[in-house]
Computed example of a mutant assay.
Amino acid sequence: MFDTTIINRALAASLIAGLLGSSAIAQEVGKSPWGPKDEIGRLNLITPQSRAAILGRIDGGRSYDLAVEYFIGMPSWEAAGDPPYQMWMTHTPHGTAVSDPMKVGKEMNDHVSYTGSAVSMYAHMGTHIDALNHFGLNGKIWNGYAAIDHLGDQGWTVTGAEKLPPIIARGVMIDVAAAKGMQMLPDNYRVTRKDLQEALDAQGATLQQGDVVLIRTGRMQHYENASAYMSNPPGLSIDAAKFLVEVGGAMVVGADNLSFEAFPAETENNYVPVHTYLLAQQGAPIIELVNLEGLSKDRVYEFAFVGASLKFRGADAAPIRPVALPLR
């Protein structure tokens, strides 16, 4: 499993530097060009025109489910102290016949079987989207919202997962692993801007403003083995993230791993610089654990991306069920 002491030490160093007034921490959260009340960042790039344009190009053939399954024992951040996924039965046909919770009698329970279940999970499990409050800098998140003013016992009053609109946009997969002739990138591999550009060139693809850009490392092939999936994953570099947003115009960035960025961090004063750059400074949501294996197999690099997350009020993330629809 990933050694969380790396994170803890880097976080401690950042906090100490801040207390000492170190000038090393120069990063600040971004202010939205969409106004002081903006809570969705670059998702403002979705317009009626952009939705219509991409939906009008769908070929009507095959669709690709980009979500993973949730199951007991699935990859999770247990090493960081977060709860694993749990599912249990609240009602079973036999149990209902015995306890008769609806008070309808044995004959009715024998005739009408009743099955019910419940789940418990960390918000950052399975295919999910990070809201803009997931990571911040110096007590603030995207657009200058301060935790002291907007974070209560029941979550954030701004930028919660319930504020994220359905995402309908052009999607582009950048298959870095395939471009390198690999099934999967090596452990701890840090994807660079050069890697992304070479993969785009190999695919004959280009980026456009407002894209949902998804990076394939091949790590999804380990998904059924939580230990292998979570251990020392590859991820994005800061330069690669900047390339996607500042040069490519990406609206949302995603990948097929859970950490998204590679560890240990490239910077001494920030243990998750890619997350804070995208979420807190650029207002770009992150989608993690995207299953890109089907797209990779069929070499589908451009598509309509359609996905809506659950409306977890005040939450910093929520499950999302994205679908890729190839274009004409």
Rank of each mutant, 00 (worst) to 15 (best):
F2N: 15
T5F: 10
R9I: 12
A10T: 11
S14M: 14
S14H: 11
I16S: 12
G18N: 13
L20F: 13
S22L: 07
I25R: 09
A26R: 13
G30V: 02
W34N: 09
G35M: 01
I46W: 01
T47W: 05
R51F: 04
I54A: 07
L55T: 11
R57S: 10
D59F: 00
G61N: 10
S63D: 09
S63W: 06
Y64R: 04
A67E: 11
Y70N: 11
Y70Q: 11
Y70L: 12
I72M: 09
M74S: 07
W77P: 08
E78P: 04
Q86H: 13
G95T: 07
S99N: 12
P101A: 05
M102F: 15
K106E: 15
K106I: 13
K106R: 15
N109Y: 07
N109G: 09
S117H: 13
A118M: 11
Y122C: 08
A123F: 14
H124M: 12
M125K: 01
L132V: 05
L137Y: 03
G139A: 02
I141K: 01
N143C: 02
G144L: 06
D149G: 07
D153E: 13
A161G: 02
K163T: 11
L164H: 08
P165S: 03
P166A: 08
I168C: 05
V172N: 03
V172I: 15
V172L: 07
I174N: 05
V176N: 03
A178I: 00
M182H: 05
N188L: 14
N188Q: 15
R190Q: 12
R193S: 10
D195T: 08
Q197K: 13
Q203C: 08
L207F: 04
Q208N: 14
G210N: 06
D211F: 01
D211C: 08
I215C: 10
H222V: 05
N225A: 09
Y229L: 02
L236S: 06
A241R: 02
K242F: 02
E246K: 11
V247A: 12
M251Y: 07
V252D: 07
G254Q: 03
L258V: 11
S259C: 12
F260Y: 11
E261A: 07
E266L: 03
E266V: 06
T267H: 14
N270V: 03
A280G: 01
Q281M: 13
Q281N: 05
G283S: 05
I286F: 01
L289H: 12
V290C: 12
N291V: 04
G294H: 10
R299H: 15
V300F: 09
Y301T: 15
A308M: 09
F312E: 08
A315S: 13
A317C: 09
P322H: 06
V323Y: 04
L325N: 00
